[in-house]
Nucleic acid binder design. Sequence first.
DNA 1: GGGGCCACTGTAAGCGCTTCCGGAAGCCGG
DNA 2: CCGGCTTCCGGAAGCGCTTACAGTGGCCCC
Lengths: 341, 341
Amino acid sequence: MAVQDRQQVTIYEVAQRVGVSIATVSRALRGTDYVAPETRRRVLAAVEELQFRPSRLGQSLAEGRHAANGIVFPDLSGPYYSEVVLGYEEVAAELGNSVLILATHGRPDPSRKVLELARRVDGMVVMGRTVADDVVAQVAEIGVPTVLLARAAVGALDTITADNDTSARQLVEHLLEHGYQRFAYLGDPDSSPDVTDRYRAFREALTDAGRKPPRSPVRCAFDVDAGHRAARRALAGSPRPQVLVCANDEVALGAMAAAAEQGLTVPADVAITGWDDVMAARYAGLTTVHQPMRELGATAARWLQDRMAGSQAAVRREVLPTRLVVRTSCGPHDAEKEVRG
Amino acid sequence: MAVQDRQQVTIYEVAQRVGVSIATVSRALRGTDYVAPETRRRVLAAVEELQFRPSRLGQSLAEGRHAANGIVFPDLSGPYYSEVVLGYEEVAAELGNSVLILATHGRPDPSRKVLELARRVDGMVVMGRTVADDVVAQVAEIGVPTVLLARAAVGALDTITADNDTSARQLVEHLLEHGYQRFAYLGDPDSSPDVTDRYRAFREALTDAGRKPPRSPVRCAFDVDAGHRAARRALAGSPRPQVLVCANDEVALGAMAAAAEQGLTVPADVAITGWDDVMAARYAGLTTVHQPMRELGATAARWLQDRMAGSQAAVRREVLPTRLVVRTSCGPHDAEKEVRG
DNA sequence: GGGGCCACTGTAAGCGCTTCCGGAAGCCGG
DNA sequence: CCGGCTTCCGGAAGCGCTTACAGTGGCCCC
């Protein structure tokens, strides 16, 4: 009742109440060893009566584990990261782990924070361009199982990514079939490993097809607003690009708005493509690349669990397949269809 | 080097190495008491050399605090929750707390999970319709400072919400000025306290203006897809509603797509409004209500900090102002402007 | 009837830290 | 020269739990 009653009831009080040792209480509670049914009953009754809840701290210290794992990501704005984190949290929770989050975006000294996080979890996943490789290596060396997500492999760590290469090539091929000549790329290849790959594959595909890729990307951040501004810049170019290949769907959505504002129709005057296949993309008729975001997170959580359980299996590297989703924003088709790859 | 070297170096090893007691090491590390400069230097050198990092568990147990706080929310899909969580995490991290997340959406037994979370944090915020009031009360009674976010007050807990009433009224008034007669409401008033309020205020405003509110809402979940389906249903009604007032922006975005599919132009054939003012709303020309999402989260984190610091100040209740943002989806205006409220 | 096993329980040793308390020097002023 | 203050440091008591180890009866079986 009293507010200042922060004094938690401990296992000692329960033991005293029942007239047994704390060991017995612990055993009765965890069902880990023989306890007479009658004793157990009395213990549970006392627990109920006193509203005893074992201290997580005491438990963890004794068990030597946190029963928690962490995830560090750059940001949470935009559906992409949210979905990944959600997929991760869902599985981690199912596996009995609490999840600690850490957003590095724009924070001073992310390395310190990551190392700090590493000390409160039994394992963690590190996403994208959040901290340098040596920090990841350090975390791993401390002995905290780590899996990398949407980021280049570091040392002997499990790594899961989505396929950017294949889809980028498919995308370019598809666009070339439309007969487009002048391509612009909207997005910052330095912003995330995914975008780095996409941009590289985009250029390669163009080169392989005997076309000249754009001199440089139109750099912009990962949001609708940035995409909007970048598209304005791109469309001001002369000759005007025929296609805006955008690093993700937010950027593409912004680009579509920018095109509309300039009186350009998509795809007649300019084709636009995105990446990720967020829900809004469908309604915008955006041609994009579908990514299994939830699954990325979920898989990371499962792999992490294996490592935390002590698995010494070979390093896992997996590239989840993506899928080109053709809608209307890239040009007219006989019928709207989804090309699978 | 060895992988199985999970054995962390402890404060004892450092102490032994330097030839002092663990007490001295602790003091040198935390700078909490007198330590001879030379001793400190040697301790720090040993710490560096052994790569000693104090165990968070040991520290927490001794200090009696977790240095962490939690946030429970229904879901992370859609920009709304993400933004709130991000605002929260940002401030919490600044204040030196790690943050634990818990998504209740669709999980069995959220109460147990929430109670569990409560035992690993020094304080937590509970958002929206995640768990019943009695669970919140229980958490508070355990002695875990709690602040409520976007949810009706429970007991003597700090509560922060966004203003739904005023904005709903402004929205309705604005729509009435357009001369609309037939209103439909898309969203599930039972899905979240915010929507409950919005729907109620929406009806009241209509009634107050001498209009008859719709018999019932067109119930749908909180995403674009659900909004799309709900709008299709709503638009099939006869006579067709002139306005679709949507519970949030995702729903409205879905509704806009549905209208377009049916060959209806917005706002000429049907006006559509949203709620939240997510980034995409701007580019869709969506009239909506701006919510300070980041700030909701940030404020919650700050209040929580006060309570964790032991503040016994009076219960805080704050309703953050929202702002009607008039764009094109509600009807033609002389010039696009933003009406502030 | 006694040895052995099984079911049950208590004792106590940690887990890795923080911090109270008290002792030991060193230093200063009277 | 001595009392008292300041500075520095070690001992040890927790913090709240888990679990290895060591019993102690009771029962069964030969």
